[in-house]
Amino acid sequence: MIFTLAFKELRSLFSSPLIWAIFALLQLSFAYLFLSRLEAFLNVQYQLNQIAHAPGVTELVIAPTFGSAAIIMLMVTPLLTMRSFADERARHTLALLLSAPISMTEIVVGKFLGLLTLLFLIIVVVTGTTLALLSGGPLDLGLILSNVIGLALLCVSYAALGIYISSLTNQPASAAMASTVVLLGLWLMGLSNADSGNILNQISLVKHYDTFSQGLINSSDVIFLVTFTITFLLLTIHRFHRERLYV
């Protein structure tokens, strides 16, 4: 049942021209970021060769590309999640799901999985772009893997928050705005404080991504991002139970 709903969500997403435009623009910007970093690397490559234990192409090109992707996805994910429930509300189609013999959990998780498929597709595209460098020489595949895992977990948390906010309204545009503002806020919290023990740093999503970009899969960061995701999914389910009660 969950997969039926996930497939339905994916289908709805791809039936909108917006998704294709976002895909094209994302691909363009990833490619541009990647190439400009690659060019910068090629310019300093000669000097780097003089240094012992100099950082390689994976550290200097690929990891920063993933880092930019993390920020770009922060602004793009709300556009992908905005329709999930707000649009069903606006088009009065929520009744179809609510009166079918399926549980609220199945509906929320199904929608979430549909979105994840889309997000993972984007991550595959980014990874594929960077792996193209394999044709030019060896890469630190471990570091790339840790970046991929980090970006995936980060996008998953973005999506969970986005779905929750989309469940609060019946206007996709306001859902997108609100999610973007909240995600930006969570990012900026991490920027403003150098002290890593600070509470603001602790709840900043992107800050938890930083360790992944250094090649470190820190279980506390994994747990944080997974907990964040589950929390917002539970809040979404709770929201619909409440809605049946009070709205």
Partner: peptide, 15 residues
């Protein structure tokens, strides 16, 4: 065991 047609009908217009 229930079939429900709300008003307006819950249709995905782009399907």
């Amino acid at each position: 065991n229930v079939g429900y047609l709300p008003e307006p009908p819950p249709l995905y217009k782009d399907w």
